[in-house]
Design a protein around this nucleic acid. Structure first.
Lengths: 130, 130
DNA sequence: TATTGACCTTCCCCTAATGGAAAGGTTTAA
DNA sequence: TTAAACCTTTCCATTAGGGGAAGGTCAATA
């Protein structure tokens, strides 16, 4: 298969496939005589794995490790779990940050009449709080 | 004031002050004979405004507009409110994304025994879901 | 007075993940 | 044979910063 076909099957676009290869997340593809990358179904499988991990928000560094553990049949599940736990904590941190911002923004938006007049609690808050 | 002092007072570091100037978020500072940027208390004020807006997660493009509205005494509060509402929606979108990820990750982490054995529901989920 | 340390300047590179676009080679079908 | 649809690499942009180099300036001290 050429890169376009594997991209369609894996739903990872060609650009990203090349990028993942560069990052060492997927093995370097073999080449045709003309220099075209050649793939098999197995590569589609790996790319779907990567895609799914991205959808769960794992950073590429984690994904690299996850792919490696996935391939390594003598892994321990604790290795995988540690990566997932760390990511979970990152996500929770992010969640709290966003929630905190939303709480403030919500209050500001609520109090701003949003009309022709220039006075605005949003600007007031940004202005002199500290 | 030199840039170091205004950085300390505004809690925005020198690097970022130069960057904000470059982005047109703050006006170009005057220069001393030696080429040092010169600031006043007013600049500290603006930088604090920018910092506060960043803490609320506003992107720099929005902040540029907010600073401009802040300075413009004939603004309408609806202009400000529109920016805040748009940002609120972005944050809500982000929040839902993170929550969705966390829900899945939480389930996976819960079901993974995390011991010496290689079998792992986390890898299983990433593997064959689609 | 000379030097040293703390400032300041610009410039370039790095982060993470993705995408656009350019410039050029290949394959396939009309 | 030529045109479309592929493929290749390389460079650039995005976001909001941060690191560090190379070099100029200022103030205090030996």
């Amino acid at each position: 298969m050429n890169i376009g076909e594997v991209a369609a099957l894996s739903e990872v676009n060609s650009k990203m496939i090349r990028r993942y290869e560069e990052l060492g997340i997927i093995p370097k593809a073999g080449r045709s005589l003309a220099g075209y990358r050649q793939y098999t179904d197995k590569d589609v499988h790996v790319l779907r794995f990567v895609k799914r991990a991205r959808e769960l928000g794992f950073p590429m560094k984690d994904i690299k490790q996850l792919v490696s553990l996935w391939r390594n049949k003598s892994r321990s599940s604790s290795q995988v779990k540690n990566i997932a736990l760390k990511h979970q904590h990152e996500l929770e941190k992010k969640l709290h940050e966003v929630q905190k911002m939303l709480k403030t923004i919500g209050q500001l938006v609520e109090n701003c009449h949003g009309d022709e007049r220039p006075d605005c609690p949003i600007l007031d808050e940004l202005n002199c709080h500290k």
